[in-house]
Design a protein around this nucleic acid. Structure first.
Length: 399
RNA sequence: GGGGAGAUUCCGGAGCGGCCAAACGGGCCAGACUGUAAAUCUGGUGGCUCAGCCUUCGGCGGUUCGAAUCCGCCUCUCCCCA
């Protein structure tokens, strides 16, 4: 029994930053084992963007491991909270999302989560289930559970106040709403990113006030993208779930060396001693291994093999196989290179096309061309345009 | 309710009425170097079939030969007082 508890605690703790409190976790695990009652572990996601990325995979991988231990994962889809917007880590007031946007994002969410978790074994709840039923007086009652002073101590609010950024009153409600979710589903533990600790603790407080045992809170590290900022699609530094195997593999090989350790620990299921061994070796090999591990998880072994070949090919300066194709934009007409780049989507405008060409970043069939106005006519077969190292387009010929 | 400050290109932040498509920094893109990593260095960063032209400085009007810069109103934000 004790050994089993210790084993599970070890799994709970892997890659975890905060754990409040470990002794409680041990007690509750023991209780769970004795009563043969799985722990209810809550994880909330607000459907604020349609795509999940590997940053989201960190807590999901953790949940997966806990699910395999037989615990009950409760996924809260925050369709009500999404309308408020979590202020954590935000330096700007966000425009609230509309119901329609939320519904749209929500559709794709559960599918994507299903790539990591066993959705059949997961309890999926929307928090509009209880928030839509609330009367205004219930809201007031909930709001009275928190003081302004405590809310305002938070880093994010401190920062925004000192930078004279606006803070909406409704934003103060967010942590309380998230905490109320915990009360409603009577959860034992809640998982979140490190920026969620404040919110998680509100759930613990609220549960206690409602005479429930306070949830145990634990957090996982937030992943940074290649630029050091928090990974986010809007920063363009994210690796999405729905990315092709070759793209995913390639992007993963570009992960900075100094985060390799964290990524191995949080995103792979490799044994920790093995991870140490890999990292003691060649850095380059380690980063390739990471790419292989994660890509395998999402796309399978065969896809990784193909991705690796593609990667090697690019590295050698060759043209990869899965180049997106495009038609000649204006059949019969000649087009300056800068315009063609924009038309086939390799540049966001012909002005940008011109800059890229002048900067020496554009190749036609592997040859650098530096004249943005070079007139091109539709090729007989096809030609391959390349911008930078990784962006390609094959323009189809006339037949 | 009263008083003050402010809104600039992705972000931060300069900007004598003409020399402003708008300094500088960050980010981003491209190039060099490399392990197609990091760091560093170089160039670029509104649009247009582009030596020229067109549209930008919260919104709408006005003054002027000429406005991001001056005036009026509006919208939004912050600060102080109550």
């Amino acid at each position: 029994m004790e050994r089993e508890v210790a084993r599970q605690v070890e799994i709970f703790r892997r890659g975890v930053v905060d754990l409040i409190e470990q002794s409680e976790l041990e007690e509750r695990l023991t209780e769970s084992l004795v009563q043969k009652r799985p722990l209810r572990i809550k994880f909330g996601m607000d459907p604020t963007s349609p795509d999940l990325h590997v940053g989201h995979a960190v807590p999901l991988m953790k949940l997966r491991a806990l699910q395999e231990l037989g615990h009950q994962i409760v996924l809260i889809v925050g369709d009500a909270t999404a309308m408020v917007g979590d202020p954590s880590g935000r330096n700007k007031l966000r425009p609230p999302l509309s119901r329609a946007e939320i519904e749209h994002n929500l559709q794709t969410y559960v599918d994507q989560v299903g790539r990591v978790l066993d959705v059949k074994k997961t309890e999926v709840r929307r928090n509009s289930e209880w928030f839509d039923k609330m009367e205004f007086q219930d809201v007031l009652k909930l709001a009275s559970r928190m003081t302004v002073a405590r809310m305002v101590e938070r880093d994010t609010f401190q920062k925004r106040m000192s930078e004279n950024e606006p803070i909406g009153i409704h934003e103060f409600l967010y942590p309380l709403m998230q905490g109320w979710d915990s009360v409603m589903i009577r959860c034992d533990l809640e998982l979140g990113g490190t920026d969620q600790l404040f919110n998680l603790l509100r759930g613990r407080d609220l549960q206690r006030e409602e005479s429930q045992p306070g949830q145990i809170c634990f957090t996982t590290r937030l992943l940074n993208g290649s630029d050091g900022r928090k990974m986010s699609k809007s920063y363009g530094n994210a690796i999405a779930f729905n990315e092709s195997a070759t793209e995913m593999y390639r992007k993963l090989t570009e992960v900075p060396d100094d985060v390799l350790h964290d990524w191995f620990v949080t995103l792979t299921t490799l044994d920790l001693t093995e991870v140490e061994e890999i990292l003691r070796g060649d850095r380059r090999a380690a980063s390739l291994r990471l790419a292989a591990e994660i890509t395998t998880f999402f796309h399978g072994v065969d896809a990784v093999q193909a991705a690796r070949e593609d990667y090697e090919k690019r590295r050698a300066g060759g043209i990869p196989d899965d180049v997106p194709e495009a038609d000649w934009p204006e059949p019969g007409a000649e087009l300056p290179l800068m315009v063609l780049l924009a038309r086939v989507g390799l540049a966001s405008s012909s002005s940008e096309g011109r800059r890229l060409v002048e900067g020496g970043g554009v190749k036609i069939d592997g040859v650098v061309v530096k004249d943005p106005k070079a007139a091109l006519s539709q090729p007989a077969r096809s030609l391959v345009l390349q911008v930078g190292k990784n962006r390609f387009a094959r323009v189809r010929g006339s037949r």
